[in-house]
């Protein structure tokens, strides 16, 4: 009984300390983004809330098992020169403990499935409804081996390039963007046998979506922070699904700019042709 009380106290104290440390970690950056980084979009914010919540759930479980391992190593350890003797207690079942364990593990799993998973998914699904994304900037994203190509049909930009001729993604902040994701090669006649899956990923936005040959997939996204690859290397487009030898190099620069900067950039790009 004595060990049980000590264990209980240590577990509560350890969990509280753990939760305190986790919260400090989570709050070490604005909006609870401490450990997560990928939060500069509406979808990324859903992810970070899930991540933070799960850290709080995981801490007491982690402390419970680790404390039990430490108890086994120090409290229940057989003395070195003691002869091998049976443990004094030979409890082979404890209905209260087993029952509590099973009930708690079922409830905990149902909880984290409902929240943050199902509740977060509801937000993700809602964010993908066209009605919730008025007046989006449409960006056609074409993935080929191994290049990201961005075109802006509303602005008559067929391929957005920077001064050195590299593909660049510009998008306005706080305005819905409709990414139209396709995998093919606009520079050659279509070769079905070399068309592969790519992953459209912007680490800073906290979201990725795969680009499947033969399918057109839509991703609605709203960037919430001004950023560019030059100032934040996580603000980049990176292929996340292995797509052949050029996969590590399949990235593009990203600029999230204000509405007026975006309009000026689009005008200049369109003028370049």
């Amino acid at each position: 009984m004595g060990s049980l009380v000590v264990f209980g106290i240590l577990w509560i104290v350890g969990s509280l300390l753990g939760e305190w440390g986790a919260t400090a970690w989570i709050d070490s950056a604005p909006n609870g983004t401490g450990p997560y980084f990928g939060t500069a979009s509406n979808l990324g914010l859903v992810g970070v809330h899930a991540f933070d919540f799960l850290i709080w759930v995981a801490v007491p479980i982690f402390v419970f098992v680790v404390l039990m391992i430490l108890f086994a190593m120090f409290k229940f350890r057989a003395r070195r020169d003691e002869n091998v003797t049976n443990a004094p207690s030979q409890v082979r079942n404890n209905k209260a403990f087993v029952g509590t364990w099973i009930v708690i593990s079922i409830l905990l799993n149902l909880l984290i499935w409902l929240h943050p998973n199902a509740s977060g998914l509801e937000q993700v699904f809602a964010a993908q409804l066209p009605a919730n994304n008025p007046k989006p900037v449409v960006i056609d994203v074409t993935a080929r081996q191994w290049e990201w190509i961005f075109s802006y049909p509303q602005y008559h930009i067929t391929q957005s390039l920077n001064a050195s001729g590299q593909d660049t993604l510009y998008m306005p902040v706080n305005r819905p963007v409709k990414f139209v994701l396709r995998s093919y090669d606009p520079f050659h006649s279509y070769a079905h046998q070399v068309d592969v899956i790519h992953g459209f990923w912007i680490p800073a936005f906290g979201v990725k979506y795969d680009v499947i040959p033969g399918e057109t997939r839509i991703l609605y996204l709203t960037a919430t922070k001004l950023m560019s690859t030059e100032t934040n290397p996580m603000a980049r487009v990176q292929c996340s699904e292995v797509c052949g030898p050029g996969h590590p190099y399949m990235e593009a620069n990203l600029h999230v700019v204000t509405g007026s900067q975006f309009a000026a950039w689009a005008k200049a790009q369109a003028a370049r042709g």
Binding site: Y36, G38, L43, G44, V46, G47, A50, F51, L54, V57, A58, I61, F62, I112, P116, N117, G120, L121, Q123, V124, G199, W201, P203, G206, V207, K208, Y209, S240, E241
Partner: peptide, 18 residues
């Protein structure tokens, strides 16, 4: 425990393939 984070779909969309 890290599986909890990966099983959560919104977080998985960031953590997948990293």
């Amino acid at each position: 425990l890290t599986g909890l984070f990966l099983a959560d779909v919104p977080a998985n969309l960031q953590l997948h393939n990293t």
